[in-house]
Design a protein around this nucleic acid. Structure first.
Lengths: 339, 339
DNA sequence: TTGTACGCGTTATCAT
DNA sequence: ATGATAACGCGTACAA
């Protein structure tokens, strides 16, 4: 059996409360007794029972991060893990531990609530997909703070969230392409119902406007999972006399197929056509030519989310905070038209 | 303030212990009181305080998974997350929650031990890199079960670990290539000090022997991060009259560069040269031609590790278990020589 | 089948 | 600056 606070107290000839004070750096304690107590702890190999501490304080000392299984297991995971790592680092600094749980079924949040109700977590990090009116209501009642990782669907929401500035990313992309001498810029978009996609489109339009470029309806291309169909579409588009001379792609897979479709059409990259992608996955730099990418600092994202949550937990109720993180451009060969 | 077991007891006119029995399905309770208690719990919106439960039982009800930051943040993460998801699923089924922590500095495991000593976890999942004599000793003393995720460095170790059968993967790869009519099979290896790499080499040699093929020393190629140098090396190798006609690559990046080096040399894939890779990352299927890959079921790996750990935790001390998981081959165009 | 009483290890309040 | 004492919410012998 491991030793308890009482053992330490007995060994050093003081009361348990004094030992507790030393452990928590609370109140004032004389140098002498403090010394004695530290020695006793050493001798007895004492380690505070964190479960008992949590229990006594009524604080779990833990944060629950929910991962959206359906989403997380796809591409996004490369990023998700960095985000998680960043958060764990912040929590650790604050003496909190990170608990992971998965939302298995859409809209089924009983697992999350279970943990909240059973008081196993002092705060939550949630993926946008799990957030719905019912959950919000429950969390409100339970008075437990949370931060959403990604911009939520609805307009303004009475809670904190963190996301990268997708509009800025698209805007940067357009600026760069124009600077490189491209002028007929197309955008390959995935699911336009997703908030981040809408933001990217908004940034794209904003930049075109800023540069006084015409907006061509057929320059916004809906990506299709039917690869052959998609490549045919690109080929068709390029055959047009008013074809685009640059593509901003929504993700690496779209970029990959676009790249190959463009090459197949006989156009040279980057001399004839520029290609730029959102997200910078490990293999993006290995394409031919390497892809210029809108870089997303997911580490920073996790860090921000974690810090905001820590704030809410300590100064219980510091209002909702929204954090839009800047993107940056990782310029590679695929868009270098001018030396 | 939320209601406690005492409130429920009072409300339903029984003693707290009876309520406790209902919660834990222990002992025998009459249908009638059981009914009453359930109703009371409902009415009072009662949820057991999991912290108090853990405290009373002296069990954390949690498992700690350590992630090797230096490794995890690289490519492997695509897999790591699936493994984590699988584990979380298993733990959840057993009523355990999953706590994540990162090992930040090499050999610095104070964080892990901190959690163990403070009794925040009942078991551990560890990456091979964290395991050293000192930690083993501490864990032994603390009597806390753990499972290592990946075959450890040293020979036989007195603990459980789970890994994929790397030798089998290499063996399968060779078999497939030979079946397709390739006969001069080279292997591109990364760091040969890594256990998994040694196993893959062993499988490769075993298969060559089984097929009575000669082992050429220069057919085992040490991959170099200096891309240009590596490609030159491949070019040089291919210029040789006794050049390989197939490459088994240690990971997707090696495969990518090999692919491009081979193409640059004017050889056709798969007609002239076959290329096969370990690991199947999202973008592996998007190369030209798509890469045949040794598939690793990381979900299964997590599941096994979690189950073994759950076993150790419940039947405290069921001896060490070693689990080598089968690989499978995802055949794509890059090795289809024969229809 | 149910109730009583105590303990789990720590913190917090109130004295001293 | 330190000690005594009472919680915290639950589980569990033991008694009934």
């Amino acid at each position: 059996m491991s030793s308890t606070i009482r053992d330490v107290a007995a060994f050093s000839g003081v009361s348990p409360s004094t030992v507790s004070r030393v452990i928590n750096n609370k109140g004032v304690i004389s140098q002498k007794t403090q010394q004695k107590i530290y020695e006793a702890m050493q001798k007895l190999d004492y380690h505070p029972n964190s479960l008992a501490q949590s229990f006594a304080k009524g604080k779990a000392g833990a944060v629950l991060m929910v991962m959206d299984a359906s989403y997380t297991l796809e591409y996004a995971n490369t990023y998700f893990l960095q985000t998680m790592f960043a958060m764990e680092t912040v929590f650790q600094e604050h003496g909190y531990s990170l608990v992971i749980s998965s939302s298995r079924e859409e809209g089924e949040n009983s697992g999350i609530l279970q943990i909240v109700y059973s008081k196993r977590a002092d705060g939550l990090i949630l993926p946008p997909a799990t957030v719905n009116a019912k959950l919000l209501d429950s969390l409100e009642k339970a008075k437990i703070p949370f931060v959403v990782l990604g911009q939520p669907e609805l307009g303004h929401q009475p809670y904190s969230w963190v996301d990268i500035d997708n509009a800025m990313g698209a805007s940067q992309a357009v600026d760069h392409l124009i600077e490189q001498g491209y002028s007929r810029i197309a955008m390959v978009a995935g699911d336009q119902k997703a908030v981040f996609m809408q933001k990217r489109l908004a940034g794209y339009y904003e930049a075109l406007e800023r540069h006084e470029l015409e907006q061509h309806k057929n320059f916004v291309i809906e990506y299709s999972d039917d690869t052959d169909a998609y490549r045919a579409e690109i080929a068709h588009l390029l055959a047009n006399k008013r074809a685009p001379d640059a593509f901003i792609c929504g993700d690496n897979v779209m970029a990959f197929h676009t790249l190959q479709a463009v090459k197949a059409s006989g156009r040279r990259i980057p001399q004839d056509i520029g290609i730029l992608t959102f997200d910078n996955y490990p293999l993006a730099e290995y394409t031919e030519p390497p892809l210029t990418a809108v870089e997303v600092d997911t580490f920073l994202m996790g860090q921000h989310a974690a810090r905001i949550l820590m704030d809410q937990i300590s100064k219980s109720g510091s209002g909702e905070v929204v954090s839009l993180l800047p993107t940056s451009l990782n310029v590679r060969e695929s868009t270098i038209k001018r030396g």
